[in-house]
């Protein structure tokens, strides 16, 4: 090359402390233990302290819980999209099914929240998995379209046949016994979903699920049913989504067709993409940004959705790695420009 311009490329090198703390030797020094644990501790501490800090303002307490609800929905989306390869545009389907299931269990059968939430979560996840079962062989855009239609179909069916309370929905659902029960119940569940799924994806069973995303033909050639593997994954994702719906309707004591609303499908996608796709923690971060933002924009009505949609588009187009992946990189690596 005889060109005069010097070309540069960005080089990324793992930080020494990152490499050292990868193995057991991390236990050698407090600095390395701290390096390893700080991010996790910060996350856990933030959520554990949140109810204590917010207890004087019940309204903001509820906002804090909305973060957890959205985080659960986003984790469900992230897991399906980035570990299984099923991009679902219908997160509201899981949410709504869980919500309605809990409402029926509570108002018709009189189950208390302690029972109605877990039962609704399980039954709802079963229902969602069965409903999506025929769509599992679909790929990419086809799966996205079909899942987008499911929640819309639910609202239209409820409206058209006037079932499940029609457009009115259910009212007078039992609430929680106290502020802290409500708060810590949900926060605990979110941690279970987050850390449970993070652990699961690295176990052998989770590996098989990720293999389906990587290369489903090889999975077939390994004597494993791809449809069954996907169904398991969808069940896990719908457990997470249905729980969020079931919990939320007990918080606000009512449920309506708005549980299947489009926002509930779009917001988790936005939270995941902003927070960092494929990390499971990213969606929590995204939710923690989007929900307060949406509170501040509450007075502006539909401008809220405009802002989300713009931020979402911006991230999809220009910063598709999301905040979490960006921050992880900065935390673990040094960057410098090298002449070539």
């Amino acid at each position: 090359m005889t060109t005069e311009t010097t070309q540069k490329r960005r080089e990324r090198i793992d930080r020494g402390i990152k490499v050292r703390s990868e193995s057991l030797y991390a236990l050698n020094s407090f600095e390395e233990i701290a390096y390893l644990l700080t991010p996790r501790v910060l996350l856990i501490a933030a959520f554990v302290l949140m109810p204590l800090i917010l207890s004087p303002w019940p309204y903001w307490g509820r906002v804090g819980l909305s973060v957890c609800i959205l985080a659960l929905l986003s984790i469900s989306f992230d897991f399906l999209a980035n570990y299984v390869g099923l991009v679902s545009l219908g997160g509201a389907f899981f949410y709504g099914v869980g919500g309605y299931m809990a409402a029926v269990l509570n108002t018709e059968l009189g189950l208390p929240p302690v029972l109605s939430i877990p039962v609704a979560t399980l039954l709802g996840a079963g229902f969602c998995t069965l409903a999506l079962l025929p769509c599992l062989p679909l790929r990419g855009i086809y799966f996205a379209i079909v899942t987008l239609m499911y929640p819309l179909l639910m609202t239209r069916i409820i409206e058209a046949f006037d079932i499940l309370g029609g457009t009115e929905g259910f009212r007078g659902i039992d609430g929680f016994s106290g502020f802290f029960t409500e708060q810590y119940g949900l926060i605990l569940a979110m941690f279970i979903a987050l850390f449970g799924l993070r652990r699961f994806v690295n176990m052998d069973g989770g590996l098989v699920i990720r293999a389906v995303k990587d290369n489903d033909q090889s999975v077939r050639a390994s004597g494993i049913s791809v449809t069954r593997t996907k169904a398991k994954a969808v069940f896990l994702a719908s457990l997470t989504g249905c729980f969020a719906g079931a919990y939320y309707i007990h918080m606000y004591s009512n449920v309506g067709i708005s549980s299947f609303a489009l926002d509930l499908s779009i917001m988790p996608i936005a939270a995941t993409i902003i927070g960092g796709a494929g990390t499971l923690v990213g969606p929590v971060l995204g939710a923690a940004i989007l929900v307060p933002l949406s509170e501040f924009l509450r007075d502006f009505g539909s401008l809220r959705i405009v802002v989300y949609a713009l931020v979402l588009t911006g991230f999809v187009v220009f910063r598709s790695e999301g905040l979490m992946n960006y921050m992880t990189r900065k935390y673990q690596q040094v960057e410098r420009w090298v002449k070539i």
């Binding site: 590996l207 990720r210 990587d214 290369n215 090889s218 050639a221 004597g223 494993i224």
Partner: peptide
């Protein structure tokens, strides 16, 4: 497969954990 189909994003040995997890 003639066109090899490994799981590109996994380490080589993890590629074999998949078939080893099969029924």
């Amino acid at each position: 497969f003639q066109i090899m189909r490994p799981y590109f994003s996994m380490p080589a040995y993890k590629n074999l954990v998949i078939p080893l997890s099969s029924p």
